[in-house]
Design a protein around this nucleic acid. Structure first.
Lengths: 336, 336
DNA sequence: AACAATCTAGTAAGCGTTTGCATGAGGGAG
DNA sequence: CTCCCTCATGCAAACGCTTACTAGATTGTT
């Protein structure tokens, strides 16, 4: 099919070594020679075989994105951010599903990555997640997005602050019975959950509002989960006048549940979510928005940085700032 | 780092050739020997180097997903379907953005793929799209999802039928002034658009309803596009009592525009979308749902099929059936 | 003018597999 | 007992690059 480096070398009247150097822009190649080589390569439609150069150089020219899901908004958006950062370079993007409870993988992650990628961007998994932790110990270049780490570079929002912000907003509106809709009871594979919850409690405490356990309900971090959790909440003795949902998608589910019960968000119960999901506008959902795509992009940039600097590299935490977007799903409690 | 095949061979007391055969399950290896080799490999934590085997075998063990966008729901969902099909095998998934008007790529697609992937699943691009067409001509194994083709295998819904179905639904409700919200005026890189539009016209014709050009508005195939188009529509002389939006996301945009004008979907103007977007439930949007993830999965399976059968392979078109999901965004016109 | 430093380019040894070919060992058929 | 065929394995040549290392040619220094 494609021409080989030897043919280019022959056609250009140089050695393969020179072709290799010329085409990769390495020094010690006369500009005249380089030009001739480049032209010859172009004429022969030559492109270096990735497999061959990978084998010879030991570098794969690939970065992996490790993510539990690919279709959910947050994850898909991070991935697109990473893709954005890579379009400018020559790096390939390998997509790997990791940590999806519904689809456990048989092959150890490290094997799936070894000699397949030079590094990886990890989405929403903490550095304590077993397979991730293992990679870090083996010094596999990693960057996290969605959770912070002091072992590798990471970019995320301040989740505790986010929880505080959302809750404080509800408190400011005059709410006292503020519920919480969270993911699984305690999911170690997604720390944002605990942090946001802490922020919630923190805000309550600061305002001297006792946290009522009956105001917290757990579901999955999905629309369905939020729906179930809200149904649960509505069946309890104590009723919240406002609910903080740990993600917009869960808030959407909560909205569906409310509607089924004849309740209106912002009138019967105030709702706040987290994410800045594109649909939050149509749903009139108040949300704490985070710059998701940008976070993915930054993580990819940080990873490339790490790959280029090799030695003198320091893990860096990047905290993105969030923005409370107020919409009609959050309003003062009925009485007021 | 990892052990090499030579070390395994030495440790197991066989040649590298035997190790290679044994580990890949090839015939002509004694079961006893195979077992010994497998155990040795496991003990040494050996995994064949992808670069090396790719170079030697000429196969990359990778399939690419060619998509204009990665974060938009439809695309992300197709990708996850492909990923689903691949988790069972040893294939890698290479993500490549192609045909995104906002991010033109400098490197010719063929070069980006050559010796990088054994085949590709193309999302929502027709076989007439220049770069895709070129790949087909070069016999690069391809499978399309979202548009049909007789040159390569493809899986898609019947878009004309979809347009007809949606429009007929509105007609059945008693509407006569049925508007259309479409993407760009004529986007050759997304045939579904034209087909759905044809279905729309077809349904009108069959019912003897004259198609009024002033009832059609163009935007992008996005929420913002739908919003703009609806604003446009509302500013026209002739007003529709119902509007068929070529995608759910555009319908969401239309809803936002309507709300801003104090109009309610299903009451002032009926709305129907296409996709079965997860948010359509919350938005109460009537939609023609398509099994997107499944389509991605099938396309991946078809591609693997093609890769395994090499020779005797016939392009196959798979038409998925759609389902009209009626919600409150579509109701009879006011008068009735 | 002699010598060191810097460029430029070539030689060839890998990189770690896969695979065509050769070889030898069994085993059933004649 | 041969002869052939099948099975099991080894040998060694690719696969198409990258990259020490080497060496000659320039250029600069003193």
């Amino acid at each position: 099919m494609s021409a080989t480096i030897r043919e280019v070398a022959a056609a250009a009247g140089v050695s393969t070594a020179t072709v290799s150097r010329a085409l990769r822009g390495l020094p010690y190649v006369d500009e005249v020679t380089r030009k001739r080589v480049v032209e010859t390569a172009q004429r022969l439609d030559y492109v270096a075989s990735p497999s061959a150069s990978r084998l010879a150089s030991g570098r794969t020219g690939t970065i992996a994105v490790l993510t539990p899901y690919v279709a959910r908004w947050f994850f898909a958006t991070v991935i697109s951010g990473v893709a954005m950062a890579l379009t400018e370079g020559p790096l390939d993007l390998l997509l790997v599903e990791v940590g999806n409870p519904d689809r456990p993988s048989t092959v150890p992650l490290e094997q799936r990555l070894r000699s397949r990628a030079d590094g990886a961007v990890v989405v929403a998994l903490p550095d304590t997640y077993p397979e991730i932790s293992q990679l870090i110990e083996h010094d596999f270049p990693l960057t996290l997005v969605g959770s912070l780490s002091d072992r590798v570079s990471s970019v995320a929002i301040n989740d505790a602050e986010t929880g505080r912000l959302a809750t404080q907003h509800l408190i400011n509106l005059g709410h006292r019975e503020i519920g919480l809709i969270s993911g699984a009871t305690s999911d170690e594979s997604f720390t944002a959950q605990d942090d946001r919850t802490n922020g919630y409690h923190d805000a309550l405490t600061r305002s001297g509002i006792p946290a009522h356990p009956a105001l917290t309900a757990y579901g999955a971090f999905t629309r369905e989960g939020g729906e179930r959790a809200m149904v649960e909440l509505l069946s309890r003795e104590v009723q919240p006048t406002a609910v903080f949902c740990l993600s917009d998608e869960m808030a959407f589910g909560a909205m569906i549940a409310m509607r089924r019960h004849g309740l209106t968000p912002g009138i019967d119960i105030a709702l706040v979510g987290v994410d800045g999901h594109p649909q939050s506008e149509l749903a009139n959902l108040t949300t704490v928005a985070q710059p998701v795509a940008e976070m993915g992009r930054l993580a990819a940039v940080a990873l490339q940085d790490r790959l280029n600097n090799a030695e003198k590299y320091e893990p860096r935490q990047t905290a993105m700032s969030v923005e409370l977007v107020v919409r009609s799903s959050s309003a003062p409690p009925k009485g007021n």
